[in-house]
Design a protein around this nucleic acid. Structure first.
Lengths: 226, 226
DNA sequence: ACCTGAACACCGTTCAAGT
DNA sequence: ACCTGAACACCGTTCAAGT
């Protein structure tokens, strides 16, 4: 038994979720299997099933842990800065656990904790003067950015450390996809301008978030004035 | 052999991908396993490995099929309407295969076909007068909407067909999450206004897309005039 | 009440062998 | 050159049995 299993403490939902999150942080989400997790807890796989219905429930429980870390809404601010702050808090919560955003994407049914968060976001808009139908549309528009993440579909290859090799990779890419290379090299807010290195995810996230929030504000003004 | 395997035709990458797409359409992406797929082709699992490196390569090949269905760029239009048209074409391509967007989300490394598409999107912006750094930022902002989909994180439970039961579910939800119910019921562009039924995904997608495109245009004007 | 052992029906992938 | 058989190291989950 090389995982120092603590067989004295009894198993519990809490202890299982703690270990699941720790295991995912340490070895990636793929290593969170019922069997492996049980092994880490010094227990036979079936022992888990007395505390957690099945694997889906385990994953939902892990999501719950992440969502619980998000800052509660701050009262007394305008909708825009309050929301901005809260979403950036959700983001930092997600960033602490690199597996979290892909797990989020894979879930289909929302749990109560997830609904609580969405309810409070809806409340922020409604209280901020957005009519319900507009709130509906802009919440769809916000999408996963409500949880502080975006799908990273743009290629950011692990840039080779050797500058010569890197140069070569870039020129090979440029032969096939010249516009991608131009655009990828133009992330000049870090002052580097190198493919796969000059892109600051936090900057990009806030850029997109602010574009959306400004867009929402404009729609709200248009509604209120008509 | 109840899957009418055609043992006369030789196996090929094309034939494997055809069957994989058909299998996913018919039985869901989870049923696309190397073993099950091989069975449908009347062949032993290992036979696939002579034509496709591994499961990852199979999934990448399936993505390729989807991306190939997207309309090529139309020359002679302004960047905005050309892009809008192309993205909506990507969307209809994705909608033909319900498993496609979640498969997209799961991929990490872009294939050449994927890079081709992104290169042509970048080209559209650059040719349309966007400087490279702004193009970089707005392509991040566009995110998965470039491919015609958004994560559906808003709860849309399968609405019970019985109106009485439905009424009851809604009032139970309203007890815990009143704002969600208000907002979900407000999708009045279909004239229904019922949770889980009144929401038109295509309308929501176009709403969000247009908000983004308008935002991009405004940023471009600001740059050009400064 | 809580944990265990053995089993079932699956995975992706390897290796050496067949034709 | 292309396909096969057997095996390895895994999955999630069931059931009946132990303490």
């Amino acid at each position: 038994m090389n995982h120092q299993a603590d067989t004295r403490r009894p198993l519990s939902r809490e202890r299982i979720l703690d270990k699941a999150v720790a295991l995912a942080d340490e070895a990636g989400i793929d290593s969170v299997s019922m069997r492996n997790l049980a092994g880490r807890l010094g227990v036979v796989p079936m022992a888990l099933y007395k505390h957690i219905a099945n694997k889906e429930a385990l994953l939902d429980g892990m999501i719950e842990r992440i969502v619980s870390e998000i800052e509660p809404p701050t009262r007394g601010t305008d909708w825009k800065s309050g929301l901005r702050r809260r979403i950036l808090s959700a983001r930092s919560s997600l960033l602490r656990h690199p597996w979290a955003s892909s797990l989020f994407e894979s879930r289909t049914a929302p749990t109560p904790v997830v609904l609580d968060y969405m309810d409070s976001i809806a409340d922020t808009f409604l209280t901020g003067g957005f009519p319900p139908d507009l709130t509906h549309q802009i919440m769809h528009t916000l999408g996963s950015r409500m949880w502080g993440f975006t799908q990273e579909l743009f290629p950011s290859p692990p840039a080779p450390s050797d500058p010569g090799v890197r140069e070569q990779v870039i020129s090979q890419m440029a032969a096939h996809w010249p516009h991608i290379v131009v655009v990828a090299s133009a992330a000049d807010h870090t002052g580097e301008g190198i493919v796969g290195a000059g892109c600051d995810d936090q900057y990009e996230f806030e850029f997109a978030l602010d574009l959306l929030l400004d867009g929402f504000e404009r729609l709200r003004e248009r509604r209120l004035s008509s």
